[in-house]
Design a protein around this nucleic acid. Sequence first.
DNA 1: CGGTCTCTTGACGGAGTTCAAAGCTAGTGG
DNA 2: CCACTAGCTTTGAACTCCGTCAAGAGACCG
Lengths: 194, 194
Amino acid sequence: MFETIIEKIREHVTLSDDDAALLSTYLEVRKLRKNQLLVEPPYPANAEYFVVKGCLRHYFLDETGVEHTTAFAMEGWWMTDLQSFFTGAPSKYHVEALEEGEVIKLRRELKDEMFNKIPALNIYFRILYQNAIISQNERILNALSTTADERYLRFVKKYPALENRVPQYLIASYLGITPEFLSKVKTRIAAKKS
Amino acid sequence: MFETIIEKIREHVTLSDDDAALLSTYLEVRKLRKNQLLVEPPYPANAEYFVVKGCLRHYFLDETGVEHTTAFAMEGWWMTDLQSFFTGAPSKYHVEALEEGEVIKLRRELKDEMFNKIPALNIYFRILYQNAIISQNERILNALSTTADERYLRFVKKYPALENRVPQYLIASYLGITPEFLSKVKTRIAAKKS
DNA sequence: CGGTCTCTTGACGGAGTTCAAAGCTAGTGG
DNA sequence: CCACTAGCTTTGAACTCCGTCAAGAGACCG
């Protein structure tokens, strides 16, 4: 039942079969329907979610009602509102399922005990968070210093799977531009290639 | 000699006097002159730096020779090129002293041993990195969804001390705009207030 | 004082937005 | 299996935000 997550963890740290079995006792499987919310302000994000199947979106809903997509998560990725999860404060971001699918849920209140029982997981999660810092840093640099064309090209290169999986208006939202302009960017790039 | 850093750590975790004394053995003081580089590509960032006095800047130098400022650090803050520090890979970012000052240096190769001897520091650094994730996430949202006026106002509100401490063209670079445009933003905002 | 470095101001151009309308696609019910 | 609808994408015109370039005004060292 938890093969996928254990396999994924073993890409980063060594985990004995006993540890793997013990880990399973801290996890829950959860089916998702399309558009289901896993985190919804202002309720605190009390769990982290590992995507087994499907696709999640992390977004901020501003005062004017506009959604700003800050991240996507596909199979093998973790996601939650980390700000809320770390601090216990009310969540400010939504986490939503874009497709029907399945996630593995790790509850906040179990995590410390789990870390004590399975120390290797400290390393695993530390690596995850380190990678988050690195990739967020790149994203800041891109957002502040490159044009929409460039950001779109890098997005397609980095996440080719997402390109045809999520609607264009969400990709536009992730890139910080309007859907209309993304459409123009795409036609411009297509014209250049020929 | 290390009072400032120990005081700062004790804001987040409890640290016995013995631990504090032991910690000191892992640290080094380093004087900085203005414009001195602490991290310089492609040399790996082999230490983290705690600012005792002065101000640091984290920036990326692109292919066209333009510098993009990604972060500042003042007294009580840590800084390095985390991407390089975590992975050991060549650094891509510069870390530079903006003023003469003093930092405390923590070497990469000592960190694991230090964590073993003083477990409380695991928690401290975990909190630091969690905060980094949270604040970077906010910065991404701002960069992608707000105008330059708004970004400048938030910057001044969040870091009032920096406003009159670092040159405007570096703040512009941090906000992702040109110095010329920042100048116009400022006069526009000043006009509105009156 | 002189020279360099920073900040300001203005004219112009390009990147991205807004609004509106039309075309396309996929799901849904008959 | 078709027809309809609702939502997504494209296209275009006018507008705003921001960059580029160039020139001038301060400010800070020597």
